[in-house]
Structures are given as C-alpha cells and as structure tokens.
C-alpha cells in the first residue's frame, strides 16, 4: 500500500484525480517487465508487444525476481506505482522456455493471470517483416477465429485478456480511413492428438480494393509480429472480484423515456396528456335550429348575427 498523498497544487491534484476511480475510465495502461532470465525471443516479443501498445505502455529494462504464480504481490506494487492495469512479464527457464505472462489488475489487485509459452520455431519479430506498418495509436480491429474461445475456460481467458489488451480506447466514432490493421487470434479445433491447440497471433494490415460494388474488397498483408502460443498455467479471477469489476455504473445507463415507444415498423409513438376537455366551451356546428331564441340575452343574439354575417361573407 502506497501512502496517500495530498496534492499540494492544482497540477498534481489533476494528475492524482486522473488516476482515481472514474465513471468513464481511461484506457488501461500496460507495463512490460522482464524476469531474472529472459531469452532473446522473449525480449523481442516484449518489444513487439510494446510497439503494438504504444503509446499506452511502459517498458522496464531491469531484471525482476518475480514468480507470478507463487507470489504476485510485486505485480500489485508495480501496478499501483505506475497505474497500469495490464502487466506483461517475460521469463525463460528450462521448465518453461520462452514464457510470457499476461496479468490484469483490478484496483491494483491481481485479477487474473495467463501464462503463455511462445513457440520458438514459428516466432517472427516485427522487424523481420519488411513492409510499412500502421500509424502509432490507431485502434485495431480484432478477430477471434475458432470455437474454442467460447467453450474452454483457458481459451475464454485468452480471448478476454487479448481483447482487453488490444482493444485500445473506447470511442464513439471511428474514421473509416483509420481502420488500418487487424489483430487476429485463432486456434484450430481440438483433436485427440492435440487437445490444447496452439493460439496463433497474427497482425495484418488492411488493404481495400474497389470491387465494383458499394463495399470494398478487403485484402490483408501480414506485418508482424507472428507469435504462436501454448497456454501454460492460468489463474482465473476470483468470482466476487470479477463481479465487482464487471459492474456497470448506473449513471451511465440510458434512461428510458416515459411515454415514447417505437412500433414494429420503426415509427416513433408518443403519448401526451392533454388535460380535461371542457365540453361546455366546445364549438359545435352552427345551425339555425340551435340558435338562441329571442328570449335570450340581447348581446348574444347580436354576436350570433355578426357571426352569421362573417360566414356569409366567407361563402360568397
């Protein structure tokens, strides 16, 4: 626990408020860390993930003696110090070669962790693809292919973590020109030979061609990095903590407007209150028979006579 600091000036207060709990949250930041021993491959992978996440990522260069699945308190400390909700940790050992651990925090406490092993035979870093890359800070499109991501808990976690990790800022409008690249996460179907298939991470640049129709023809070009993961250990979120983290603020819920409905056709219907109608003052059709007799008030007859004149004038 870091001591609570009282801001001394407006600037530091703004900075502190920006770190606090918010109704509409900032984009989650990422901290990239290395363990005591890393392989060249994991270092490349960490650098590439940093490149994908820029400018919302911080990369530390020093070695850290952390074993996340034994004691993740160091992650919590780093998370609270740097205000990062995602932590990516690279390590390499004989037992778990080329290891990358994705950890998420909620309120600077570890929410869940996912340990992935990178396949060294298929790994290709970002630099090895000699082609133009996307602009920094663009919101990616993401695609998950494979039925596993909806069924198995490990792969569900992969989907949740990767979607959370790559999705970027929540925005309400996107420039169509800005749809520049796509991150593809795919896994083959499990078979008897291979019960836990490899998760493929591919990043593609989008290229659109005229198709002679309204919609363009989309082509993709791989820009790297290319990583194939094997899911190793996972630590799922505590149910209570996850429930708390998934809560939606009530203030942001769209208010239902009373008395306004939309019917099946899509027409907007409104119901309004008109107040009570006074039937005595209602103007009914004028007829000679309904006229007041000579016994009535003189003024009234005068008015009626005038009305008749007006009517005649209109008719003529």
């Amino acid at each position: 626990m870091i001591r609570t600091v009282k801001p001394r000036n407006a600037r530091s207060k703004r900075a502190l408020d920006d770190r606090g709990a918010k109704l509409i949250e900032n984009q989650k930041k990422t901290l990239l860390l290395s363990g005591t021993s890393t392989s060249e491959l994991t270092r490349h992978a960490l650098g590439d993930l940093h490149a994908l996440k820029k400018p919302h990522a911080i990369k530390f260069t020093k070695k850290n003696d952390i074993h996340p699945f034994e004691d993740a308190s160091a992650f919590e400390f780093f998370s609270s110090k740097n205000d990062t909700a995602h932590i990516v940790f690279a390590s390499h050992s004989k037992k778990r070669p080329h290891n990358i651990t994705f950890a998420r925090t909620f309120d600077h406490k570890i929410l869940d962790m996912l340990e992935l092993g990178i396949d060294e035979t298929t790994f290709r870093p970002l630099e090895s693809f000699k082609n133009p890359k996307f602009a920094v800070g663009m919101k990616p499109m993401i695609c998950f292919t494979g039925s596993l991501f909806d069924s198995t808990p490990e792969y569900k976690l992969v989907k949740s973590v990767f979607l959370d990790f790559f999705r970027g800022e929540t925005i309400n409008a996107v420039d169509v020109e800005g749809l520049q690249y796509m991150i593809n996460v795919s896994a083959a179907e499990p078979s008897d030979r291979e019960t836990t298939p490899v998760v493929h991470l591919r990043v593609h640049l989008i290229k659109t061609r005229k198709s002679g129709q309204k919609l363009p023809r989309v082509e993709v070009e791989e820009i790297g990095p290319r990583m194939d993961f094997r899911v190793r250990r996972i630590q799922e979120a505590d149910a209570g903590m996850m429930k708390e983290a998934l809560k939606k603020p009530r203030q942001l819920e769209a208010r239902t407007k009373k008395n306004i409905e939309t019917d099946i056709i899509g027409d907007k219907l409104g119901r309004i209150h008109t107040g009570k109608q006074d039937l005595n003052k209602m103007q009914s059709r004028k007829m000679k028979g309904l006229k007041r007799g000579p016994t009535d008030d003189e003024e009234m007859t005068l008015v009626d006579a005038e009305d008749d004149k007006v009517k005649k004038a209109r008719l003529s």
Binding site: C143, S147, D150, R167
Partner: peptide
Amino acid sequence: GNLCAFDSNPL
C-alpha cells in the same frame, strides 16, 4: 463497439 469479430467456424 470494440471493432471486434468472433468467428466460431473451425479453421
């Protein structure tokens, strides 16, 4: 909203 597609067809 997340610019995300989920394809549950097998490869």
